[in-house]
Design a protein around this nucleic acid. Structure first.
Length: 423
RNA sequence: GUGGGUGUAGCUCAGCUGGUCAGAGCGCCAGGUUGUGGCCCUGGAGGUCGUGGGUUCAAGUCCCAUCACUCACCCCA
C-alpha cells in the first residue's frame, strides 16, 4: 500500500462532486442543443489512440506532441497516447468510417476529457474537458463563420457575453513558406536579443515568434512584415469572405494579426474567444481551418474547419460573471417516529418517489426535531410526518415548510396534496 | 521544464522574536422543546500542526529535504 496514506486525486485532476456536476450537466445540455440546431451529430471516439495519430496530425514540432502527451505502451508493446485534443481522433474516425464517401460536409461534435502533461494553474489541468465540433468536407468561408457563430452563440446562451473574438488568417502551404522566409530574414539581426524560447521558435516554428507575450520580444519584432499582407490571392479572398459573413451575422471580432496557433494543422482562418474573467489562461475556445489534415492522416485531399472550447474555463467564467444560483430543494422530507411510523414512512417515501417527487427520509432514527432540522437544511417544500398515531390511521401530517401550516392527510391522498405544492 | 506564494479541526483562518499554542468562527452531532425547522442558549465529537530528517533542555514556531496546493512563465482549452 504505497502512497495511499495521502489519498488524493492525481496532480492536475479533480473530482466533480454532485453540486458542481449539476452545472456540468447544464452546460452539456445546452451545448448538445446548440450543436444539434446547427446540424451536428455527436461522435464518441476513444480516450486513447495510437501515438502516431497525434504525432502526424498535430505535428512533431508542437509543444503538445513534444512534451505534453501521456504516452504509454500496452501489453503488446503498442505505443498509445491519451488524447491531448479532439480533432485528430475525429478525423481518424471520419476516414475509418468512410464518411469521405458519404454526403459532404460531415458535421460532428464531441464532448469529453483530454489529457496534457503540464504544470496545473488557474484554468489549466492535466485532465480537462473540451467540447468541440468539426465540419469536414467544405472549404466554404461560411463554414468557418459557422464555427465562430456556433461557439459564440453557445456562450451567450449560457449567459456569458463579455468575451472577445480574435481573428486571423495564417495562410496556406502556398503562401506561408514565403512569408516565413521573410519573417526569418526580418528577425535575423535581433535573434540574439530575443528571449530563450523565442530563439528556439526562430528555428522550429517562426510563426510563433509573433505572439510571444514578452514586451521585449514584441518590441524587437514590431516592424516585422504582417502575415495578413502576405496572403496569396486565394487565402486573401477566403479571409475577405469570412469577414463579410461575420459582418452579416453581426458578430463582432477583432483582427489579431499576431494570432497563430500551437497546432501545426491550421491553415487560413484561425480564431480564439477570450474571456476577461479568467486570468492568464484566458481562451475559452479556439479553432480554425485545417485543409491539409485529412490528407496528412492518409485520406483524400479534404478541407475542414473546427473548434474546441474548454469546459472548465466556460464554467469558471460563468461562475465569475454570474451570481451563484441556489440549488433547488427537495419536494418532501418524510419524518417518522416509532416503529410503525417508520414502516409507514418507508412505504410513503417509496410511493412518492415512484410518482416522480424528490423525497428524502431519515435513516438515522433521529429525533423528530433533528429530522425537521434536516428537512429545513435540504430546503424541503414540505415535511410528511408519520408517528404511531398517524400510522394507525393510515394517514400523515403534512407540514408546509414555508407557511408552517399543517394538516392531517389520508395516505391515499398524500400524493395529491403534495403535488399541489402545499396545503 | 522554470520562478514566486502557501501548507494548523470538514471549511475559512489566529497562533508575535522557539517555552500551557493546540485555538476561534462557521459546519457537524446532541440537549434546552416526552412528536415539530429557521433565531437563541448549552454541551460534544473532530487535528500525525503536509511528510521525513536536523538544531535545541524545549520546534506549528528555526534549518534542510521532500510532497502537495496555488499563481505566473511556457503552451493552450
Amino acid at each position: 500500500m504505497i502512497g495511499l496514506a495521502r489519498l488524493s486525486a492525481p496532480r492536475g485532476t479533480a473530482d466533480i462532486m454532485p453540486q458542481e456536476a449539476r452545472r456540468w450537466q447544464e452546460l452539456e445540455r445546452v451545448a448538445r442543443q446548440v450543436f444539434e440546431a446547427y446540424g451536428y451529430g455527436e461522435v464518441r471516439t476513444p480516450i486513447f489512440e495510437y501515438t502516431e495519430l497525434f504525432q502526424r496530425g498535430i505535428g512533431e514540432a508542437t509543444d503538445v506532441v513534444d512534451k505534453e502527451m501521456y504516452t504509454f505502451r500496452d501489453r503488446a508493446d503498442r505505443s498509445l497516447t491519451l488524447r491531448p485534443e479532439g480533432t485528430a481522433g475525429v478525423v481518424r474516425a471520419y476516414l475509418e468510417h468512410r464518411l469521405d464517401g458519404a454526403a459532404q460536409p460531415a458535421k460532428l461534435y464531441y464532448l469529453g476529457p483530454m489529457f496534457r502533461y503540464e504544470r496545473p494553474q488557474a484554468g489549466r489541468a492535466r485532465q480537462f474537458h473540451q467540447l468541440g465540433a468539426e465540419c469536414i468536407g467544405t472549404s466554404d468561408p461560411a463554414a468557418d463563420v459557422e464555427m465562430i457563430g456556433m461557439l459564440a452563440g453557445l456562450l451567450r446562451r449560457l449567459g456569458l457575453d463579455g468575451f472577445e473574438v480574435r481573428l486571423n488568417s495564417i495562410g496556406c502551404p502556398r503562401c506561408r513558406p514565403a512569408y516565413v522566409a521573410r519573417l526569418r530574414e526580418a528577425v535575423a539581426s535581433v535573434v540574439e536579443q530575443l528571449c530563450p524560447s523565442c530563439r528556439e521558435r526562430y528555428h522550429r516554428s517562426p510563426l510563433r515568434l509573433l505572439d510571444c507575450k514578452r514586451e521585449s520580444c514584441q518590441r524587437l519584432t514590431a516592424g516585422v512584415p504582417v502575415l495578413l499582407d502576405a496572403l496569396c490571392d486565394e487565402c486573401h479572398g477566403h479571409f475577405r469572405q469570412v469577414r463579410q459573413h461575420l459582418d452579416d451575422l453581426e458578430i463582432e471580432y477583432r483582427l489579431w494579426p499576431r494570432l497563430v496557433r500551437g497546432l501545426d494543422y491550421y491553415t487560413k482562418t484561425v480564431f480564439e474567444l477570450i474571456s476577461p474573467d479568467l486570468g492568464a489562461q484566458d481562451a475559452l475556445g479556439g479553432g480554425g481551418r485545417y485543409d491539409g489534415l485529412v490528407e496528412t492522416l492518409g485520406g483524400p485531399p479534404t478541407p475542414g474547419v473546427g473548434f474546441a472550447a474548454g469546459m472548465e474555463r466556460i464554467l469558471l467564467a460563468l461562475a465569475k460573471s454570474r451570481p451563484q444560483e441556489t440549488a433547488s430543494g427537495i419536494d418532501a422530507f418524510v419524518a417518522h417516529h416509532g416503529a410503525e411510523g417508520r414502516r409507514a414512512a418507508v412505504r410513503i417515501a417509496a410511493r412518492l418517489r415512484d410518482a416522480g417527487l424528490r423525497v428524502e427520509i431519515d435513516y438515522l432514527n433521529r429525533s423528530l426535531r433533528a429530522q425537521m432540522k434536516q428537512a429545513d437544511r435540504q430546503r424541503a417544500r414540505a415535511v410528511v410526518i408519520v408517528g404511531e398515531d398517524e400510522a394507525a390511521r393510515e394517514a400523515a401530517r403534512v407540514r408546509d415548510m414555508e407557511t408552517g401550516r399543517e394538516q392531517e392527510v389520508p395516505e391515499s391522498n398524500l400524493l395529491h396534496v403534495l403535488a399541489q405544492g402545499g396545503n
